[in-house]
Design a protein around this nucleic acid. Sequence first.
DNA 1: TTGCGCTTAGAATATTAATTCCATTATAGA
DNA 2: TCTATAATGGAATTAATATTCTAAGCGCAA
Lengths: 277, 277
Amino acid sequence: MNKAQGVMSYDELRGAIAQRHRALSGRLQQIAEFVLDHPTDVALGTVAEVAQRSGVPPSAIVRFAHALGFGGFTEMQQVFRSRLVAGVAPSYKARLARMKSEEKSVLGRQPAAVLSRFVSEAQSALVTLSQSVHTRELEAATAILAKARDIYLLGLGGSFPVAIHLAYVLRKLGRRVVLLDGVGGSIHEQSHAATADDALVAISFRNYYPDTARLFPELVARGVPTISITDSLLSPIVEGASVIFEIQDMPEPALRTLVAPMCLVQALAIGLDLAAD
Amino acid sequence: MNKAQGVMSYDELRGAIAQRHRALSGRLQQIAEFVLDHPTDVALGTVAEVAQRSGVPPSAIVRFAHALGFGGFTEMQQVFRSRLVAGVAPSYKARLARMKSEEKSVLGRQPAAVLSRFVSEAQSALVTLSQSVHTRELEAATAILAKARDIYLLGLGGSFPVAIHLAYVLRKLGRRVVLLDGVGGSIHEQSHAATADDALVAISFRNYYPDTARLFPELVARGVPTISITDSLLSPIVEGASVIFEIQDMPEPALRTLVAPMCLVQALAIGLDLAAD
DNA sequence: TTGCGCTTAGAATATTAATTCCATTATAGA
DNA sequence: TCTATAATGGAATTAATATTCTAAGCGCAA
């Protein structure tokens, strides 16, 4: 009946439904009203469920999808599902995949295009950060740091810049900081003096640096309160941590901008300083 | 294997998976990692799809669901779907508005408010960055780096994290990098071998680190091509620089998040790599 | 009223997906 | 090294789901 539309966004679909509403037959109008009111039901339900909730037989649902130019219910459902995924994450693998493919194209190789890609990647990382970090964790972390005599920082490999930055800021604010960098000896020796009166901030992303995985449990075992910043609940610095900040969707090492963790540690340090007054 | 849990929230499920991860068998661990990283795939996919994406046979997925105490995949999937529904429920605009109001509230000292302040500051820094950096400079910088035998990096004090990060990424991409960090001697000695066949990336923001101000002119005098990343045209690393990136509005040292320069150096490194093919 | 075209409901069917089962392969302990 | 135990992959099975088909229903015009 209608031209076969290629891909269609949820908003476009809404518009199309509204526009054709008058031209549809009675039953189909009824369905149109239902799907506009209950998009989530359509996204997640089966034909039978949607049919029951909207009070029509299953075949009517399929006819409705056909009337809109879809090959079937399943096809229409994809559009409703896209709305759900858009709501939960401001792009995901889609972004990453797009990046990968653009890399191959001529346009994507231009330096300016590369920069703007990283900028938008960073933007979305920041949005995700502010959505996923909760007050409770921030307060718990601040409390731990406030009580600490010395603050130990552990972040090796690709996470080292974050640790360095945090060390810098904390020192500026007059805190006693021990940066576990392994320079001039082992990090084990550097962390030897840490006790339950101190605190540890550990930062680690895939692939987790072996030394980090080894040292962290030791310090936990010695009773050092720990704040972990990582990308997965399965990382080696989660078990035994007092507070965990999970930063999801970190790209592969060579592509990550560290924007989110940099921002987070900054906020921790300044939040600590403000709370101390 | 486990008690049948009644209803379970997505966050509870994440916690349960993380907790049991170690106790699971190899294949099931692999699946655990996948589902924590790709919750949307699990929410919307079929067993076969999830199986394929995580690289395991379908039956393993079902065993995983059983191991977690669910009656089957479908039952577990409900929990992942609840996350999608929750994400979309408060409309997008509503969430943004909530964020904005929290920003303004008198509770500016609360850690959460501090974080969102830094996040929004970082956002605007990124916008400024993409507006102020031009193609010409990016291309010139890329050309210099492409020709360089060794790439020397100079960024001390507050800029050190940026230098470290750039060193890390460049090395990942197979470039020869000398990081001038002053460890185990003076940075003068470290930079002694630099010639006109190499290149220098210097990063410095107010207050300019004395060693940077001292070393930079020396290298320029020796004919080393230089790329400067700084916050003012009056900084000590501007005169004689081959390419200058000016990043404006950097806050005072203790408050800066380094988001913009981190992003810029990332783009430089990747742009270099892409251009090299 | 009668006949025509479009719409509809529900059963029948085809398709797709989830689950179970079992032979084979790894693992740990003696 | 051998044995017992658990884990695994893939085929077979079962369940569910979407789609099609057909006879009946309905409105409308002649």
